[in-house]
Design a protein around this nucleic acid. Sequence first.
DNA 1: AAATTATAAATTATCAATAATCTATAATCT
DNA 2: AGATTATAGATTATTGATAATTTATAATTT
Lengths: 223, 223
Amino acid sequence: MVHENGAAELQHRKVFREEIRNAIREAIFAGELKPGDRIIETYWAKELGVSQGPVREAIRDLEAMGLVETVPFKGSRVRSLSEKDIRDNYSVRICLESKSIRDAIQNLDDPALEQLVTRLRTILCEMETSAGEGDLRSFTEQDAAFHRAIIDATGNQVLLRLWEQCNMRNWFMFSALTDAKSLRKLQAGHKKLTEAICQRNLRSATATLEDHLTSLMDSFIRG
Amino acid sequence: MVHENGAAELQHRKVFREEIRNAIREAIFAGELKPGDRIIETYWAKELGVSQGPVREAIRDLEAMGLVETVPFKGSRVRSLSEKDIRDNYSVRICLESKSIRDAIQNLDDPALEQLVTRLRTILCEMETSAGEGDLRSFTEQDAAFHRAIIDATGNQVLLRLWEQCNMRNWFMFSALTDAKSLRKLQAGHKKLTEAICQRNLRSATATLEDHLTSLMDSFIRG
DNA sequence: AAATTATAAATTATCAATAATCTATAATCT
DNA sequence: AGATTATAGATTATTGATAATTTATAATTT
């Protein structure tokens, strides 16, 4: 019996909460629920054929993600994100990712850095494929995987947890970057970043990251 | 009728969840619940004279704080924090607070910075009093208020939310810093930081902050 | 005796019903 | 009329009971 590898193998038991959370999230993405709209527990309970409890928990999750705001006894609403909110979000994300790059470049030994770079290049390849096929969904997932890989390499769980919370992919799964030009530009940024990390060039890496995330933010704001 | 100032005045309606969350947290602080121990919903429901639902929600909150880990259908346990966990936590906190100081110094205009400094000095005074009276609880609360004030001044809600999550005060309300010597050292750090901000001396401010938080971390690890 | 399978106890997840609270509308008062 | 106070309807918060799942223990098999 050689199973039970840490925590990865576990948590596969499905709990309603997750599905409910996704359902409400999708409704927000689809524009069915607009910023400011109320999220009524009993409505979603009936809609999804479950009871109120799990819906409550799902809403709490969305709240922790920053997608929803709740006032006790009054209810929950879809948060309306101002341009400032988005800017704040990205500025914190840049802060966290800069740190992860700094930590990776400064603390990882050669084999570990090599391993990270290899992983980044693998993801890069997969992104090329997704971009070629026009599969936006997997492209954005791989984009997240790319950035997460760097943070993973630092081994800092706190950093990872906080980053997950300000990764806007959680807010808007698909964004305005539907055109091929944006994708190519993103890819160029990823490549440049990978090379900078490979060469332990901290200055170039952080500058590239800032450019990369800032242009991503701009496309959100404009789109 | 001149109430309803934004969001501060609201959320005063008590919800069980908060009290339950605090009760369990206190049990962890008191050593009643040790790392690895299970947190049983029905036990706490009976213990506190409430039902299972609110207890579940409270546990979810503690989970989001990183104090507890949960596996579906198996239950929740108090997370065991390694020294590395604590170090990671502080290194992220330093990252976030450095950013807030940088943003404050670079972006605030003179009146706004003046206002921040005034507020910091007020808190500083209150801390002197608490320290003199040996009131550890209010001292730690004011310490948190001091750091929060800087982040508040930047107006970045995302930064604030993430900072709340890696503020270890949430984990260990009272720490090992019971001796008067540590308190004086902390206070000296606060004062120096306040002056550096007042003079817009970014280098001094961040260096002071790093020292300050690092020594705080050390006292946690040693204590 | 070791391993496997059944059973029982404990615990979590969910439900359905009720209590508490808020919101909007109607009634009352000055 | 304008403001204040009741009332009704909607929604959240909580409860107590039940179903689903896991864990520990006993029974069975080989």
